[in-house]
Amino acid sequence: MTMADVPPHAGALGQRLVAHPIAARLGRESGVPRVLYDGSTLPFPDCSFDAVLLAFVLHHCPHPVAVLREAARVSRRVLVLEDGNGEFPPNRLDRVTDALINLEFGHPHGERSRLEWLGMFAACGLGVEQEQGFTSRFGGLRGRHRLYVLNRL
């Protein structure tokens, strides 16, 4: 098991103040190595891992297809956890709420509908093995999410 992350961009206050320190602490306390990489090419050989988890990552990536392809390259299975649980992408209020919760501004918010995600996965040569929607609550706000378990076709 290895954690991989990219350095925060200028507008990623939440990533710099919350996510990175938590990931560093979890890595130290659990003994799980943590790798910072350029966001383009993961520093691992093909099929290095059984699974890669992309949790609420893709909608913040300027090039989500490249990230998906790279995750598929280094693993046998890709788990994608994303916002949105319906046939429509999250609305403007959802995007603003996401930016406020994450303290992140000035970066992509490429939320998609379920069908758009499925199309992107297929374009990357990934098939859906399983998917499940669920709802969470954070600070009194309700969030709709979907988990996709993907494998290479």
Rank of each mutant, 00 (worst) to 15 (best):
A4N: 02
V6Q: 12
P7L: 00
P8E: 03
A10M: 14
A10V: 15
A12L: 11
R16D: 09
R16K: 14
L17R: 12
V18I: 15
A19C: 10
P21N: 06
P21Q: 00
A24I: 02
R25A: 15
R25N: 14
E29D: 15
V35P: 03
V35T: 04
D38C: 01
P43S: 10
P43N: 07
F44D: 01
C47W: 12
D50K: 07
L53R: 01
A55D: 05
V57A: 06
L58T: 01
P62W: 12
A66L: 08
L68Y: 10
A71T: 02
V78N: 05
L79S: 02
V80T: 11
L81H: 10
G86N: 01
G86S: 10
E87H: 07
F88C: 09
P89K: 13
R92P: 05
R92F: 14
A99H: 06
N102F: 11
F105N: 13
G106Y: 07
G106D: 00
P108V: 13
H109L: 11
H109Q: 10
H109F: 14
R114D: 15
L115D: 14
L115E: 15
M120E: 15
F121H: 05
A122G: 08
A122C: 08
C124E: 00
V128C: 11
G133W: 08
R137P: 02
G140I: 09
L141Y: 14
Y148S: 05
L150Q: 03
